[in-house]
Design a protein around this nucleic acid. Structure first.
Lengths: 136, 136
DNA sequence: ACGCTTTTGGTACTTTAGTATAATCGTGTA
DNA sequence: TACACGATTATACTAAAGTACCAAAAGCGT
């Protein structure tokens, strides 16, 4: 916000400056006026593009990244979150077990607790909920 | 591309027009010149903002949207795709059946064909593959 | 009308997934 | 030290999910 005010303030100032220049320069000279107009046009066009890009970039930041704050809020343990990630990649309990070097029983336990904490009835629903919560 | 050329062309023309106006209007009048400058500044600033927003939007289009070209390439029928969408929302076969007013047997058939066409062994894997293919 | 694909439905079966319960082990904390 | 907690494993069971195979009705283009 402060930046915006500063930028617009300096823009207004530069406009005033151009006004003064146009007053005390060779007013009758067509070339001066045309050059002035072209300068103003180019400068404000560039400023417009730049400002717009700035504002759009700040809007883009909050999207598409994981929130480990909510993971803690849901009381998900590290292991449970690992399992959640594997589930979202489409692996079966047996495959996840082999990946994490544990038995399928262990994974089943983790999955069960995971579903309870996410209020999901199925692993597919858990994926959906997790993505809404930006956990995945 | 054509639009961009048109817009810049009209901008150049309007600048030339302003030049002509400044030539044949009361050149000695300071107010005219200042008004002209302000107009040019405002117009080009707005155009800059507008063009930038346009170009950024066209950059955004290719991301996050579904490609119905690949759906045909995979030979997925409408019904099968509907089922795929429901699966990705976390519904069970029975729930999907109720939603689409058919029996669970029908959904199972669709799911089986769906998995075969997507080369998936599980519905969770189907979701993952579908998202990679930008089908979802 | 005929052939083709889609959609629908069923039966029988195998495989995963998920629940419930309980026990063991390690780690950190009251 | 005792206790809570996370991670691990197991058993027994229920419930989904998925496969295979089949078959009829519907829709569509030639």
């Amino acid at each position: 916000m402060k930046k915006t005010i500063l930028i617009f303030g300096s823009l207004a100032l530069s406009l005033l400056l151009l006004f003064q220049i146009s007053k005390y320069s060779l007013i009758g000279n067509d070339f001066e006026i045309e050059g002035l107009l072209a300068m103003v046009a180019v400068v404000f066009f560039i400023v417009g593009v730049y400002l717009n890009k700035r504002s759009l970039h700040t809007e883009k930041l909050p999207e598409g990244e994981i929130d480990l704050k909510k993971i803690e809020a849901l009381e998900l343990s590290k292991r449970e979150y690992e399992v959640l990630v594997e589930i979202s990649m489409g692996y079966s309990n047996k495959e996840i077990a082999d990946k994490l070097f544990v038995t399928e029983s262990t994974i089943k336990t983790h999955v069960s607790n995971l579903l309870a904490k996410l209020n999901a009835k199925r692993r597919t629903q858990a994926i959906q909920i997790a993505k809404e919560l930006k956990i995945l």
